[in-house]
Amino acid sequence: MLGFLGPNGAGKTTAMRTIFGLVTPDSGEVTWDGKPITTDRKRRFGYMPEQRGLYPKMKAHDQLTYLGRLRGMETKEAAASADRWLERFGLAERRMDRVEVLSHGNQQRVQLAAALVHDPELLVLDEPFSGLDPIATETMADILREETANGKAVVFSSHQLDLVEDICEDVAIINAGQIVVEGNVRKLKDAAPIRHLELELDGEVDDLFQSLEGVRQITSDDHAHTAIIDAGTDVRGFLSRAQEMGRLRHFTYTTPSLSDLFREAVR
């Protein structure tokens, strides 16, 4: 599962469209298994565009069956798969409802089902989590995890970096059309030149941070302080000094979060 990240306008949607030949690249080529993508291959991909699009007047079940048929399934097979996915998303009773009468969240579920109905080997999802409540987000994340476990490749874009950090093994961050960071999330974090430091302490800390080397950024909120520091900095001395200065309630020293990496990368 690959999280595809980047600030607004970086080219995420364009890159995803390019996979499906919806945009013709000025240069370069999109390949899958080392080969250019043919129309038949494309039918084994599933796509959820950022701008949701379904026929509003078509029934959910009919819609999914139709899309399954378009991608080469037989009618029975497509209908069965449509029902299976509607059930998986808890929409079994609404299968004969027109899409336009469904709530926003349910429409989004149908939209994801539309990308999944033909059992694709690659799922490309443009912001699948936007606009979902935490519970729906969790269901969607579970389904994506399951699909990955079943051997499918999943690429999705999102601005919810905590979520991406939680469910993706790999990320790619692009900025202005170029990939600036890519790789395994854990390795990227380990290899990052910065560390994340958090502490909560009663009393003045100004002098304390001045004694610390390689501080890149400090944000303070009352007694809670967050700092980004160089990875090479030894914090053991800092910790003992902090303990001397007052009551230390909380102290963490970790690899940077994905949000930290993202901010560093696109700065």
């Binding site: 499906f20 919806l22 494309k42 959820m48 565009p49 379904l54 026929y55 899309l67």
Partner: peptide, 10 residues
């Protein structure tokens, strides 16, 4: 209604 993007993907 943007369904065209889904359709043209296949």
């Amino acid at each position: 209604n943007r369904v065209v993007e889904v359709l043209l993907s296949s």
